[in-house]
């Protein structure tokens, strides 16, 4: 893997899209005028954002501005107070819980903390596949595990291979380093082949080596046609992996644009100040 010079490298958006894929006309996931908060506190105010298939959108902004809240809303953890959230053109809060579950199962998420289950690497990576199985198949799998008659599922091993951990199937999650754990968390979200991957500051606690592995995995996901939203306050990371950048400040998303444009010639002066570390908030 080669790491580009963070200071100069900007991702070429066209290079990550499948060459034979037609241009997307409907964004996979689209938030329109989302407003949300807790109690009397408003966290997000009129946020609009779309994530297309195969593109990487970096959501940048200072800590505490609502990046995690936005990602949780996009992951359908809770209903926004106002605004609409569309998935392939369907308002996901205007349908039944069962229908929404089908949409939810097309979204994967990685948290800032790996949050692995108290189980082996293999079982962690397989979890998303496991919950999509019928109860009969799940019980069959549990029994096979109990008597030691089962190897890892192909998709899970493949996902672990993307993050370089396919040889660690039987290691327990508690024996992993922080970086390895986060890589398993990424594989867990990738294994069930989601349409959209939401990453909440996935590398904020990682060393450069593990950060590079995760960033490579983001590129791989993008090449597979998965739309990725990554919340980060690492400007260099946004520059390295993103096709588009959305700047989230107290007022909501103040600017969205192509990565190169956003870093070199942003329209909103606050974007320039934030990128340069001069914005007081």
């Amino acid at each position: 893997m080669t790491m580009d010079d963070p200071a100069t490298a900007t991702k070429d958006a066209s290079s990550t899209r499948p060459t034979d894929a037609p241009p997307s006309t409907t964004p996979t996931l689209r938030a329109v005028d989302i407003q949300h908060g807790y109690g009397s506190e408003t966290v997000l105010e009129s946020v609009s954002l779309s994530i297309d298939a195969g593109e990487v959108v970096a959501i940048i902004g200072p800590s505490g501005v609502g990046k995690t809240t936005l990602l949780r809303l996009l992951a359908l953890f809770e209903q926004p107070r106002d605004g609409t959230l569309e998935y392939d053109g369907t308002d996901v809060w205007e349908i039944t819980t069962q229908q929404r579950l089908a949409f939810r199962r097309r979204i994967g998420m990685v948290f800032q903390d790996a949050s692995l289950f108290d189980a082996s690497v293999r079982r962690n990576a397989e979890y998303g596949l496991h919950v999509r199985q019928s109860w009969i198949d799940r019980l069959r799998r549990e029994f096979a595990d109990l008597v030691g008659l089962r190897d890892g599922t192909g998709e899970a091993i493949e996902a672990l291979d993307v993050v370089g951990l396919s040889d660690e199937l039987d290691r327990h999650a508690s024996s992993l380093s922080g970086g390895e754990a986060q890589r398993v968390a990424f594989a867990r979200a990738l294994a069930f082949d989601p349409d959209v991957l939401l990453l909440d500051e996935p590398t904020s606690d990682l060393d450069p080596r593990n950060t590079a592995v995760i960033e490579d995995a983001v590129r791989e996901a993008s090449e597979r046609g998965i739309g990725v939203a990554i919340a980060t306050h690492d400007m260099n990371q946004a520059r390295r992996v993103a096709d588009r950048v959305a700047v989230l400040l107290g007022d909501g998303i103040i600017e969205v644009g192509e990565t190169k444009t956003m870093f070199e010639d942003p329209e909103d002066p606050r974007t320039r100040k934030f990128i340069d570390g001069e914005l007081i908030y």
Partner: peptide, 13 residues
């Protein structure tokens, strides 16, 4: 709570 969130985010009911 984050472990429970992870189960939900992976498509768990």
């Amino acid at each position: 709570q984050q472990v429970r969130d992870a189960a939900f985010a992976m498509g768990g009911t």
